[in-house]
Design a protein around this nucleic acid. Structure first.
Lengths: 245, 245
DNA sequence: GACGTTAGGTTAACGATGTCAACCTGACTC
DNA sequence: GAGTCAGGTTGACATCGTTAACCTAACGTC
């Protein structure tokens, strides 16, 4: 297909082609915005090489796509590093919003690495990196006493909330989202952070529904309807709790 | 491929084949667990018909797959209906957990409809149905005074949290999840519900960091480190708030 | 400088997939 | 019984991921 053959790399420099393939695939992904456009043939042509040559450097298409998308993850590490510092709770919020911005800035890569069945049996690098950063930010809050409980469990909650929001934004672009996405994300980060901060302070010994009632009573918050008498705490519920249903 | 031709349906009963194709595809999806196994040819053979016949009833593969997966969504409506009733905040929690259970019970269908770029320009039916149920449960809480604010915005937060958790569970099965998934989901529903309940009660007029500080002060919660003096409220942060970074 | 070795590619082909144009045919209408 | 058309089939096309077999220029060796 190519008019001229590729000038063969010198011995030991075959890795150069790998780099060139990754660059070509990355460009293609950026231009088209979807991984479906990443066919082995097109990538090969773009790298100035024949199709089977791709298999000299990647075991298969899946590995190629994964490698391409993983490149964006370096940026995530940098972003999280920049978000650290200062008040740990504020930093946690910055990390959450930065994570969301990162995902929305690289929707195709995020979709490939986080929203598709992971191929290999090992823990996927992208997910464990993202989660690792989250845990670090949460652990700082725990050390500071802002959050209480297992950092990993807390981080899973925050990660779920932020990932849920951006993954819906990415996968459902035609959903009637509010215009201000930034505000939506801030809202959700706020909700998650606030929920985590207060949830962990519930006295675990109490039965859950009583727990929430007592806690909110301490907080001066009524969970009953505005017009009802507020002396009854038994009618207050807690959404995370398994009850009759 | 089939040894005998299909007995042709009577006039006006061509829809019977559509139903048969959907059934065959549904079985295949249930057996294999992945939509990649849903090839037009295999579905056709299984329905006892030749490949192009599928195109008499579905515009393309995408439409077929979507139709198959949408069948599970009827169950979601039923599940949400069962979760209603009683204390609205408790019901909201039941809905969240039921939603998560539904997603984990139909991972392939959930992945296809919620974790892939939606094809058509119209609002995808699956997402709007799921969100609609969420909004209904939240709106009941708002009417009861348990939650405050825009039901749709609040529902987006809860939906994000639950969807985020289950979509990660589905897409990253090799991640080191805690053994008790049910507990994880309950934790996240709890976090989201608690966060939404308290977040909406923050006096919006105050600048956010002062808001959180004042609110938590009312609640008797210290966001500073355990060892620090607690008179200073200015050092408290709020994760959803945009600040210097 | 000739030689064998081998890394770095190419050529040609396979099987599977989604999709379509053209054709067939039996059920129904009149 | 002729005509029509819904309900399907035949056969084929382009494209995809992947592989086997082959070629050849670069290098170490003598």
């Amino acid at each position: 297909m190519a008019t001229t053959r590729r000038v063969r790399a010198r011995r030991g420099e075959g890795v150069l082609l790998r780099e060139e393939i990754l660059r070509a695939a990355g460009e293609l992904l950026a231009e088209t915005g979807t991984e479906d456009a990443l066919t082995v043939r097109v990538v090969a042509v773009r790298a100035g090489v024949t199709t089977p040559s791709v298999y000299l450097h990647f075991a298969g298409k899946e590995e190629l796509v994964e490698a391409v998308c993983l490149r964006a993850w370096d940026e995530l590490g940098r972003i999280f590093a920049e978000s650290r510092g200062g008040d740990p709770f504020l930093a946690l919020g910055r990390c959450g919003r930065a994570y969301a911005r990162f995902a929305l800035d690289h929707p195709a890569q995020y979709r490939v690495l986080m929203m598709r069945p992971s191929a290999g049996p090992g823990v996927p690098a992208a997910a464990s990196a993202a989660f690792g950063h989250m845990v670090a930010a949460v652990a700082a809050c725990v050390r500071a006493g802002v959050l209480q409980g297992d950092p990993e469990t807390l981080a899973l909650g925050l990660w779920s909330a932020v990932h849920g929001c951006v993954s819906l934004l990415i996968a459902q672009p035609s959903f009637p989202w509010p215009e201000d996405r930034e505000a939506l994300i801030a809202h959700i980060v706020h909700m998650a952070g606030f929920g985590a901060a207060l949830q962990s302070r519930l006295p675990r010994a109490l039965p859950p529904s009583a727990r929430l009632a007592a806690e909110l009573d301490d907080f001066g918050v009524r969970l009953t309807a505005a017009g009802e008498q507020s002396g009854q705490t038994g009618q207050c519920g807690q959404p995370g709790q398994t009850d009759s249903v």
